[in-house]
Structure formats: structure tokens, C-alpha cells
Computed example of a mutant assay.
Amino acid sequence: MNNHSTALPGDARAASAADASAHTVDTTLPLRELTRALGALCDVLEEEHPPVAVVRVVGPGPETSPGTPDAVTVQDVNRWERVVRRFERTAVIKCLMVAGSCTGTALDLLLASDYRVAAPDLSLQPPRHDGRLWPGMSLYRLVRQAGVTETRRLALRGEPVTAEQALRLGLVDEITDDQEAAARALSARFHGTAHEDFAVVRQLLLEAPSAEYEEALGVHLAACDRELRRRAAARDSAGDPVAALPDSGTEAAA
């Protein structure tokens, strides 16, 4: 596995597309620099298309992160939220490694990742400033992923969530004190996964909570049609005599 650092804007370098790529995102950077750095990482992932990207998050958001007004404008926050959304929707399977305090921009990245590995000392908490909760998009993702009730409790109590609690809530997928070994295992586990197909599944999952049934049906049928066509093409290339189903998704919709 190749290791790369995204500590400064433009410092995200590509790994071989045949292997997983590993990157470090330094969330102690000022928001504007961090936004540029995450954008550079997205460029790498979109251009190189590694099957898996292991992303290690360094440090909690600084005192001048989106959780505070110091030297940050709403335009800066908007640019950050947009690049996090771009990161979230990138086709590559993104495995995030996090330890210690996870708040502010680090929490944003955690919630936008596909698979989350936490160290036992994880302390997860929505960002606050002077006792006031930051109303950023981490709240939106927390509601969608953990539910309204649990997010309301987090907002009211202001108590950090431990690694075990985060696992129970589904905010992390695994707890380990050996993240290097976990990164190697995840690279092997997801190496054969078709990340472009997973990107379609991810989008269906993201849209499911808010989509009406009839609206969702059309999108799911289109995805099913694409998968049936892929299988038919695979059979044809292998010389399989079994008849293909070229228009099954269209017929089902009718």
C-alpha cells in the first residue's frame, strides 16, 4: 500500500490504480487550506480510481474550525461543505481511520466515508463554541445515520460519544488498536469490489430515506437494468449459451 499525505493543498499524490491508496488528512489546518487539500485528494481519487482509499484523519478541528466564527465566513463554510459532498460521492470506496477526539471537520469526514475504523480512545462529539452547537451539515448526516432521537440526545447532552457507543449507533464499523493492520485487511477485503458499482449502491442508500416509493422504483429499476446488462455482456464474452435479458429492466418498469 502506498502512503500519501494531504497535509497541504495539492500534496495528495496518486497510488497505483491496481492497489489501494493511503492518504492522511490533517484537520488541524485552517479551513480554507483544508478545503483545498481535500479538493486535491478528490482530484487524485477521481483521476486514479484506486479500488480502495484508506484515509487517516489527524487531529480534531482547530479552535478556528467551522465550529467557531474566527476568520471564517459563510462562503468558506459553503466551500467546505461542497468539497465534503464531493468526497462523499467519489466512486472510490473510502475507509476512514480515526483516533482520539473527532469533532468539527474530522467528524464531517467520518460521516462522509464508506467504512469507519475507530481506535479505542475515540471521543466523538458535534462541534461547539462557547457552549453553542455548530449547526453544520454534520447534524444532517448524524440524523440520517443515527436517527433524530440519538442526534437530539447528542445535541442536548453535549457529552462525547465513546468508540463503543459509536459502534452501537452505527457511526463506526470497527474498533481496533492496530489501525495499520486494519488498513491492510480492508485493502485486501475491498480490493475486488467494483467501486463504480458500489457508487451506484451508495447513491441509492443516500436517497432512500427521503425518496418516495414510486420515485425510488424508477431509479432502482435503472440500476437493475444496468446490472443485468453487465451480466449479459459477461456471459457473451465468456461464450455462455444462456440467453441474455437485454431489456428486462424496461419490461419490469412497464
Rank of each mutant, 00 (worst) to 15 (best):
R132L: 13
E63W: 07
G192R: 14
A223M: 09
R56Q: 10
D11Y: 10
R152N: 07
V54T: 11
Y213F: 14
E159I: 00
R13A: 14
F198R: 13
H23Q: 11
L167Q: 09
Q203S: 05
S21D: 07
V74G: 04
R230G: 02
R32M: 06
V98M: 09
L204Q: 01
G61D: 12
P126Q: 04
R152D: 03
R168Q: 09
E48A: 13
T68S: 15
L29W: 01
D43E: 06
V83Q: 12
A37N: 07
T27L: 05
A119T: 05
V25E: 06
R86T: 03
A99G: 15
A182N: 04
L142K: 09
R230T: 05
V72Q: 12
E48W: 10
L206D: 03
S248I: 08
L228I: 06
L31N: 11
E81A: 14
T176K: 00
N3A: 10
V25S: 01
P120Y: 00
P246Y: 00
V83W: 10
G136Q: 04
P127A: 15
R132P: 04
T151L: 08
H49M: 11
R36K: 13
N3W: 13
V148L: 15
T176P: 01
E207V: 08
Q145T: 07
C102R: 02
C102F: 05
R13N: 14
R85F: 01
A20V: 06
E227C: 04
V72M: 10
A7V: 15
D240M: 02
P30I: 00
A146R: 04
D19E: 06
S248L: 09
G147E: 11
K94S: 02
R235E: 07
A118F: 00
A211Y: 07
R89L: 06
T90E: 08
R202H: 06
A253E: 06
T6N: 04
A222R: 15
S187H: 02
V52Y: 10
D178G: 07
H129D: 03
N78I: 14
V219H: 04
L34F: 02
T193R: 15
R86K: 04
A181Q: 10
L171C: 00
L221F: 02
W134E: 10
L109N: 05
E33C: 09
Y140H: 14
H220S: 09
T64N: 15
A223Y: 14
V25M: 05
Q75E: 09
D114L: 04
D247I: 09
D108V: 00
L34N: 13
A112L: 02
S237T: 11
A163G: 13
V84G: 13
V84H: 12
R231A: 05
A234L: 05
M1T: 11
R235Q: 08
V54W: 10
W80M: 00
A71R: 15
